[in-house]
């Protein structure tokens, strides 16, 4: 099982530290749980950092022969720290929200080029936001909300979860609003990090791959390729 560094966009993706710290913190959130479902990732002992973390910030002079920019530069900063033992993990898993920038879909290809033997990389793009990776897991959603899949289907829009966008004019097509409505109407709960983690931990990766063919499916393949398949536990459902 590999301990990895998760780099992502926010609380629901990778968690937040329980205390003010400039150091990487124990990984939480949707991405680590899903990574654990699809690959040999030791989520419980993995670390996380937001993209905005100072330890990923770059202020390099412009005259470097191999200068990198943006997310790529941040990934190179993380890799340097992993390869030199500053961050004691076995690899890097990073996810960005596509938001309103379709060019980000190319990012995994750009980042995977940098993978090394010491630091495998699995990168993914949540299309169009990380909530798709929760809303696409209908069976797990129903289980976590202690309801039936039919009920979830009725409350969710019929279109693909990868079309939902937080900036949509129609509020009923905003994924955070949909999740909150599901939690509230079906289980009198609030949308929370804990709820999303529970859903992620119950997620059937195959179901989510079908629901999120652009974002999650290639991410799952990348994580498995980088860190190997998850161990088969005797007696568990495959």
């Amino acid at each position: 099982m590999k301990r990895v560094l998760f780099v992502g966009d926010g609380k629901h993706d990778i968690g937040v530290p329980d205390w003010p710290t400039d150091e990487p913190f124990p990984a939480r959130g949707v991405v680590p749980h899903l990574a654990e479902r699809v690959a040999a990732v030791d989520r419980a002992h993995s670390l996380a950092m937001p993209w905005s973390h100072p330890r990923l910030s770059r202020f390099q002079p412009k005259n470097r022969a191999q200068r990198t920019r943006g997310y790529e530069a941040k990934v190179r900063a993380a890799m340097l720290q992993i390869e030199r033992g500053v961050l004691r993990v076995d690899g890097l898993v990073c996810v960005v929200d596509e938001d309103n920038d379709p060019e980000r879909r190319n990012l995994p290809d750009v980042l995977h080029v940098h993978a090394s033997e010491r630091c495998p990389i699995a990168a993914g793009v949540a299309v169009r936001s990380i909530e798709a990776w929760t809303l696409g897991a209908r069976t797990a959603l129903a289980q976590a909300l202690r309801t039936k899949v039919d009920m979830v289907e009725k409350t969710c829009p019929s279109s693909s979860v990868e079309e939902l966008y937080e900036g949509a004019g129609d509020r009923s097509r905003r994924p955070k609003h949909i999740l909150q409505r599901l939690a509230d109407e079906l289980a009198r709960m609030k949308d929370s990090l804990e709820l999303r983690e529970e859903i992620a931990s119950l997620t059937d990766p195959d179901e989510l791959c079908k629901a999120c063919p652009i974002g999650f499916a290639p991410f799952a393949v990348a994580v498995r390729a980088a860190f190997g398949p998850p161990p088969v536990v005797v007696g568990s459902t495959p």
Binding site: Q60, R64, A77, L80, V86
Partner: peptide
């Protein structure tokens, strides 16, 4: 790829001196 200051900031003194693990 990196600046001298970046290497110091990202790695700290010990990891910088000890090199690749």
């Amino acid at each position: 790829e990196f600046g001298t200051g970046e290497l110091w900031y990202l790695l700290g003194e010990q990891a910088l001196v000890e090199g690749k693990k």
